[in-house]
């Protein structure tokens, strides 16, 4: 057993798979992090990914260009995110319920469109779609272990890493980041400061749509080379759990999505050992919810200690700090 684990963790192939399965989760988790910071829960990420995956395949087969496919996919994903915004922000609908509706809309809708175009409900193999390029890095690919891990990865893995930097920059360095946080923490205060909360929320929805779009296109044009029905396989939902684990930061999103990536990659190895595949398939979701529970537990404990201190008049050093509460802590927003 120990030998098996050591073998897995030292093999370059394992870490190659880890990077590959972490990247899409990382992208959507970043999307969830940024919308959640603005105080709107984007449950439609799953739907965004599905449409992006399908539209990416269709556009790339029509135009013969994977990049135009990616663009199309991103636009489709943004359209879903904007629909959520339209109903949740302009028509006063419950955002979570809208997300559920849009996911339902997308699960069946993508199959409907696929069938109407190709006559097949399961897979898009009759469309000659392209894949996004895999990048071989000139010198690094000759380094024995490292070369096998990071050379030959899809361009989207690098896009995901770039996205972490971009989202981190947006959230912490740019003016818009402060506005996002202000909107998320106190809408009335943000309004008083001259911020239009709806604008900010729409902006974060667009960003999350772009990220989910890239992730969706990766699934059908890189991770695999076809669209299959239900290709997102709950990654959008996992992202919503991972966002809580990430604690609302872009760097935290790396760790949160790595939890999923490590287990997901491990699952492929465990299958070879002869453990029942059904239970192994459940493993990534199980680990995600475990992380989700542990993090909410810790945060809740920390907050109750803080409240106790406040009550006793012992303030922490540096005065009061804003603490994640309410929807940031993953719920408790009345619906």
């Amino acid at each position: 057993m120990i030998e098996f684990i050591v073998n897995v963790f030292t093999s370059a192939n394992y870490w190659f798979i880890v990077l590959r399965s972490t990247a899409p989760i990382l992208l959507v988790t970043l999307g969830a992090v940024i919308t959640e910071s603005a105080g709107i829960k984007n449950m439609a990420l799953e739907g965004s990914m599905l449409w992006a995956a399908l539209v990416g395949v269709i556009v790339s087969s029509w135009t013969g260009s994977a990049w135009l496919g990616l663009l199309g996919g991103i636009l489709a994903a943004v359209a879903i995110a904007l629909t959520l915004g339209l109903f949740a922000l302009k028509l006063d609908a419950n955002a979570v319920l809208c997300g559920v509706a849009l996911n339902l809309f997308s699960t069946g809708g993508t199959v409907f469109v696929l069938f109407s175009l190709t006559g097949d409900k399961g897979i898009s193999s009759s469309l000659a779609s392209k894949t996004l390029p895999f990048i071989k890095i000139p010198f690094i690919q000759d380094i024995p272990w490292l070369g096998k891990v990071i050379s030959g990865q899809n361009v989207v893995i690098w896009l995901a890493i770039a996205a972490v930097v971009v989202v981190h920059f947006i959230m912490n360095k740019a003016t818009i980041g402060r506005r996002i946080k202000a909107t998320g923490e106190n809408v009335e205060a943000a309004k008083a400061a001259g911020i239009d909360p709806d604008h900010i929320k729409f902006f974060t929805l667009i960003v999350s749509g772009v990220l989910a779009g890239i992730a969706g296109c990766f699934l059908s044009m890189g991770y695999t080379s076809n669209f299959t029905s239900g290709i997102a396989a709950g990654r959008g939902y996992v992202a919503n759990a991972a966002q809580v684990v990430a604690g609302g930061t872009a760097v935290g999103a790396i760790f949160a999505s790595l939890i999923f990536g490590l287990t997901d990659a491990m699952a492929t190895y465990l299958q070879n050992v002869g453990l029942p595949p059904e239970l192994i398939q459940a493993l990534p979701y199980f680990v995600t919810i475990l992380g989700f529970i542990v993090v909410t537990l810790i945060r809740d404990r920390r907050e109750s200690i803080r409240k106790k201190k406040l009550f006793e008049g012992k303030l922490p050093k540096g005065g009061l700090k804003p603490v994640m509460t309410g929807s940031d802590a993953g719920g408790a927003t009345p619906v």
């Binding site: 809580v244 199980f286 995600t288 989700f292 529970i293 537990l297 993953g330």
Partner: peptide, 13 residues
């Protein structure tokens, strides 16, 4: 107990 969002956890479950 821990104010974990019930929709997210139920989807995982």
């Amino acid at each position: 107990k821990w104010r974990a969002n019930e929709l997210v956890s139920s989807l995982m479950f």
